[in-house]
Design a protein around this nucleic acid. Structure first.
Lengths: 151, 151
DNA sequence: TGACAAATAAGAATAATTCTTATTTAAGAA
DNA sequence: TTCTTAAATAAGAATTATTCTTATTTGTCA
């Protein structure tokens, strides 16, 4: 989202709200801004902490409901986790994830090959497949070299 | 696990415990039995409800700790979910998942092709990749045909 | 500008998990 | 077999994450 001008971004948001009959409230705008600034995969609480700085009396519940609403209309994705708090992904384009089993961070990566995996016949017969994602578990660079000074 | 005789199964369990310096307690045996009878991907609470029938005064905490311990030693897997309770997979062989977005069930499926996906070079350079899984989202047969009488 | 459904804040309630403490027990040593 | 001890357990408190309830506020549209 970094490539877009702020006004275009807000205009996009307003249009999406109109399409889905959602009111454009200042709370939603604030959450939207922070969410699409984020390159992480924030939890509700993480987003609450950030938004609260600019919108001190926003409630946790509002942040939670809003993020779920955004997920319902496909504005963000709910990310696969291994239990615990929900995490959200502002990047809804086709991509894949690597979970660091050491620090718990989730890293996005891209692969045309992974984007175009064929669905096995038996699966296709029994299910309507909507999305496909490759999920890797591993250890990230930082966790592999904890002492290393970054260049 | 259906193919193995009960005694062999128990023997396997005892050996795994010895290897990892875990005591063979009746609680652990009971949980192990139920877990490997299950073809679902149970939560702690689901397992607690089942085990409680045969072991009425077992505590939730014991079931929870035990399942996490089993996951730590690789006896079961922690399954990817989209928030909420942890779910466990007694099937630790290489397989893939389909999540029904309607009923929430997780279905296992197998694919040699998916088992042998190449890791993209840039990912391999930056991460030590331990496991790989394809996660599909879709709608299962039952949810697609809610009225249909099963054959 | 007014009406009204939708959205919000605040706090209570619920769900999932982990922690604390006292007690029990499996497993190896004597 | 009995003894010893660290590990495991039960019970309940505490914590974390989420959702619900209720009263109030506010976008949106007529």
């Amino acid at each position: 989202m970094q490539g877009k001008e702020p006004n275009t971004l807000l205009q996009d948001f307003i249009e999406k709200c109109q399409v889905h009959n959602l009111k454009v409230t200042p709370q939603r705008v604030a959450i939207y801004r922070e969410l699409f600034d984020s390159t992480e995969h924030p939890t509700v609480d993480a987003m609450f902490q950030v938004v609260k700085k600019k919108f001190p009396n926003i409630s946790y519940d509002t942040v939670s409901r809003t993020m779920l609403t955004f997920a319902e209309i496909g504005m963000v994705d709910l990310v696969e986790v291994y239990g615990g708090a929900k995490r959200f992904d502002p990047n809804v384009s086709n991509h894949h994830h690597l979970h660091c089993v050491s620090c718990g961070k989730i890293f996005d990566f891209h692969s045309d090959h992974y984007n175009n995996l064929e669905i096995p016949d038996d699966v296709r017969r029994a299910f309507t497949v909507l999305t496909s994602r490759v999920v890797l578990k591993g250890i990230c660079e930082k966790c592999s070299n904890p002492g290393k000074i970054s260049p």
